[in-house]
Nucleic acid binder design. Sequence first.
DNA 1: GCTTGATCTGAACAGGCGTTCAGATAATCT
DNA 2: AGATTATCTGAACGCCTGTTCAGATCAAGC
Lengths: 194, 194
Amino acid sequence: MARTAGSHSDITGPRVREAALKLFAQHGYAAVSMRRIAQEVGVQAGALYNYTPDKQSLLFDLMRGHMDELMAARSSEPECNTPLDCLEAFSRFHIRFHLERPQAVFISYMELRNLTPENFAAIEDLRRRYESELETILRDGRDAGVFHVADTKITTLAIIAMLNGVNTWYRSGGRLSLPEVEAIYWDMVRKAVT
Amino acid sequence: MARTAGSHSDITGPRVREAALKLFAQHGYAAVSMRRIAQEVGVQAGALYNYTPDKQSLLFDLMRGHMDELMAARSSEPECNTPLDCLEAFSRFHIRFHLERPQAVFISYMELRNLTPENFAAIEDLRRRYESELETILRDGRDAGVFHVADTKITTLAIIAMLNGVNTWYRSGGRLSLPEVEAIYWDMVRKAVT
DNA sequence: GCTTGATCTGAACAGGCGTTCAGATAATCT
DNA sequence: AGATTATCTGAACGCCTGTTCAGATCAAGC
């Protein structure tokens, strides 16, 4: 046997990425074999190499794709005026964006150590750029006398950590709706810095 | 060759756990082989099985040991009086305890999915018990009219997530001392709930 | 309808995996 | 000193790993 009926790269390609995303998030990069991914796609392991040069690239492409999406979505957000408005927009955007793609978020935080040094550096650079947007907001607010933060760098990381925490417990259809969650977290963020 | 000079379970046993802790934290449970752990200890892989029935138990024992230490340390903390004092004590204790054992903390958060279902349930139970201590403080404070929190369960998770974030960036000997870090985070926690 | 190129199979490669165990040696006890 | 026990080695087990590739088959273009 060889090429199978209905096979097409436009179909198989995305399915490979989806399978890898799902399985990496579920069991971890190191615990998932190429054969297991192939099984999920419904194909033999060798066929995966039409879509990725190797397993490492599969992971890296998922992560970079996620970070690129993050930066792009952030860029196309409406502009803000006051530091307080900007901080609220950032908080709500962060929660919304991350809750929409829990698997990619999970991978991007858990599998950093399975990246090669070069790939790790690339992802870290993107993350740093994203976080610096929040720090800029905090610095502007502090300079304007609106925010009272002891250390903008640490406050940035603390806020990000708190917002990321949503992904550990939120389930759509649960007790709280997305707007309610946004409101609760924004309230805590606002109070923490003012 | 067989038993080596100077070999003793009182020495090798702890070294096995230390090696596993270090390597699991560094590369992840699934990515670390028993042979790699043995190499770190300076022994052949078979010798490890004098100290653990299998690899899974090695991971689980590290995690349960960490959680047991956490609960024990928390229990032997001095008592607190007001909700505000209790929250401050909890926040400072949490930061201090977690910064003292970054590897065990890392493993306990990252390797949950590599536990068998029964082992996972056991660890989760301990974690829930610890977190419920914070929630009790928040509820008491809210009932006393000191804290203003929309949802004690979510606020609990948000605070824990924020405090845990310290471990991602803090390095002893860095720009900030432990007391300074404690103060900064306690300030944010206090403001977020009052 | 035939050709060309894209897609997949199935087998193979060399090496690593967790785990077991008989046998050898060191430490300990009497 | 001799017997006993604790500890470790080294080899082996069956299975799984990421990756490659020749050959087979399907889809698409002329």
